[in-house]
């Protein structure tokens, strides 16, 4: 069976930035990358089930009526809170980064020469985080099943003991 490839959305109104990030991630990971110049387009395509979205903060250079990155982040988190969103921005203002994190962004990356490597590291961390979360869920499920099994055994034993006592009493009388 073919391995399912992870789907990643890149949302940026700067074609050069998008192309460079697309090429970089395509070299580093086995992904299916979808690019959008506005957040609205990406929101219409959430049925494609992206695991990760890299979202630019400024999205108005091509379409002036396009919503900014924070508005899109809020909408994304309302619709699909499980999708990890990494904000990408030319702004290195701390207030903007804090605002993005407050609304559920996984991380905030300032556009620069080192941004590509940072995104690569973040994606590795997210992958690790998701693997750990998955393992934890599996352990929890296993633990629940084990507890149910122990419970059933104990109840069975109690019933068996009671029945044994009842049988013994019956024999005595």
């Amino acid at each position: 069976m073919a391995k399912m490839q992870k789907i990643v959305f890149l949302i940026d109104d700067d074609p050069m930035q998008t192309q460079m990030l697309h090429d970089y991630l395509d070299d580093k990971f086995e992904l299916v990358l979808h690019t959008y110049s506005t957040g609205e387009e990406a929101l219409e395509n959430l049925h494609l089930n992206p695991e990760l979205i890299i979202l630019d903060y400024h999205l108005m250079s091509v379409n002036k009526s396009a919503e900014d990155g924070v508005a899109i982040l809020k909408a994304l988190k309302e619709k699909r809170p499980e999708i990890q969103v990494v904000m990408l921005s030319g702004q290195d203002k701390i207030q903007i980064a804090v605002e993005c994190m407050k609304h559920g962004a996984y991380d905030y990356v300032v556009k620069s020469e080192s941004a590509f490597m940072r995104i690569e590291n973040i994606m590795n961390n997210i992958g690790e985080h998701m693997r750990t979360t998955h393992l934890l869920k599996m352990y929890k499920r296993g633990l629940t099943i084990a507890l149910i099994a122990i419970g059933v055994i104990i109840i069975g034993a109690v019933i068996a003991v009671k029945m044994g006592i009842a049988t013994a009493n019956f024999v005595v009388f």
Binding site: D13, D14, M16, Q17, M20, H58, M60, S61, G90, K111, S112, E113
Partner: peptide, 13 residues
Amino acid sequence: KVAAHTLKSQTKY
């Protein structure tokens, strides 16, 4: 402002 903002990252690269 928006045009300058786009030029900021492109000129860096």
